[in-house]
Amino acid sequence: MEEFYTVAMIISIATFTISTVTTPGPNNIMLLSSGLTFGYKKTIPHMSGIIVGFPFMVVLVGLGMGVIFEKFPVILSILKIVGILYLFWMAFKIANNTSAYEVNKGQKSEPFTFFQAAIFQWVNPKAWIMAITAISIFVTANENSYLQVITIAFIYFLSSIISANSWAFGGVVLKKFIKNESSVKKLNIIMAVLLIASVLPIIFE
């Protein structure tokens, strides 16, 4: 590792990744809501999709997709618009989530699957910004670029494990202080508002 990254650089990457994945954003707010609504166990596929899906996205961006966006910035702009619209739709869904132990005529909302969470990374504006920024800052040598990209993705993988579990567990802890379904509903509405708020800086940048 020292051949292409110093220990100081590894620490710098780790600090960057942990700070970007743990701050409030679409992934984390949705995990908090899922932990609150469905519990930790049912949120594991959602967490796993993020933990695996985002580092995989970082690898693909690092191996060439970033160049495509530099040459054709309109593609990234279109992805941002699609992602923002999707997040508004998700905010609506979260606001209307009910608790997993409530049965309403056999119909109830379901947590994200592994595949849904992994695919979501590709329409998550914050994920694109994080991936492109990390690659542009920390890929410093052409001869070792592939190893550097893999290293960045692996550190993101470890950081995502910490972040995803923390936010999902936070939702579980919140639920312990809630005594009725009405309170769950109100908190999910707050989550939906926070989800929209998390993409406002991207809209007005």
Rank of each mutant, 00 (worst) to 15 (best):
T133D: 05
S198R: 07
P26D: 03
I18Q: 06
S48C: 13
L76R: 04
I44K: 01
T6E: 04
G66D: 10
I132T: 12
N180K: 06
A127I: 08
F138N: 00
Q116I: 08
F169L: 14
I11K: 04
G106M: 07
E181Y: 09
K41Q: 09
P24H: 08
L147V: 08
I129V: 12
P201Y: 11
A91Y: 08
F38I: 01
G64I: 05
V149K: 02
I84D: 06
G39E: 03
G35K: 02
L187G: 02
F154L: 11
I203Q: 09
A192T: 09
F56E: 00
V21T: 14
K186P: 04
S166T: 15
I132G: 04
K186Q: 08
N142V: 14
G25C: 06
I78M: 10
T140G: 08
K179M: 10
T43F: 03
I202F: 09
N180Y: 07
G83F: 11
P73I: 10
A91R: 04
V199S: 02
F16N: 11
H46W: 04
A197V: 15
F138K: 01
P24F: 11
E3C: 08
I190L: 13
E181A: 13
E2T: 13
S183H: 11
M9L: 12
Q148K: 04
M9F: 10
I155W: 04
I11P: 00
I44V: 12
K185E: 12
I162H: 02
S166C: 12
I78A: 10
V74Y: 15
K105L: 13
K185D: 09
S109I: 10
A153C: 04
V59T: 04
I75G: 05
S166G: 10
I11H: 03
A134C: 08
I78E: 05
F88Y: 13
K108E: 12
K80N: 11
A192L: 09
T140V: 15
V193L: 13
N104V: 15
G25Y: 05
A100R: 07
F4E: 02
M65D: 02
G171T: 06
G66K: 09
L31I: 05
E143F: 14
S198Y: 05
K105N: 14
F38A: 00
Q148M: 07
I94G: 01
I75S: 05
S160L: 12
I202E: 10
A91H: 06
N188R: 02
